[in-house]
């Protein structure tokens, strides 16, 4: 494992049933896309809740790296550095 590439992924309450109740997962990935790909390998049903079949993050899901929204960074190619926290949020939407 490349220790320097280890980041944590915070899982919101509604999705914890898809990863054995974990509120936080650790992944080893150089960017957000690779982090999600690791989730797909290790927790496929969790991944399906975050991304659709094309690999796109679902429309009403917000992914943050630390305090910045993925759309304001480099999308799935956003680089990660050791200690980064990737947070998955259900977006504020509905009716």
């Amino acid at each position: 494992m490349h220790r320097e590439l280890t980041v944590s992924v915070r899982i919101p309450g509604p999705l914890r049933e898809y990863c054995a109740g974990a509120s936080e997962l650790t992944v080893t990935a150089p960017d957000v896309g690779a982090a999600l790909a690791q989730l797909e390998r290790e927790h496929p049903s969790l991944y399906r809740n975050i991304c659709d079949e094309t690999g796109a993050v679902r429309r009403h899901i917000a992914v943050f790296v630390n305090t910045s929204h993925l759309r304001d960074l480099g999308g799935l190619g956003t680089a990660l550095v050791p200690g980064d926290v990737v947070t998955i949020f259900p977006a504020v939407s509905g009716g």
């Binding site: 509604p14 975050i50 679902r58 429309r59 939407s93």
Partner: peptide
């Protein structure tokens, strides 16, 4: 058996 779809706007 009862089946239903669930169209979750957030999680698919």
């Amino acid at each position: 058996r009862l089946y239903a779809s669930s169209c979750n706007a957030f999680f698919g």
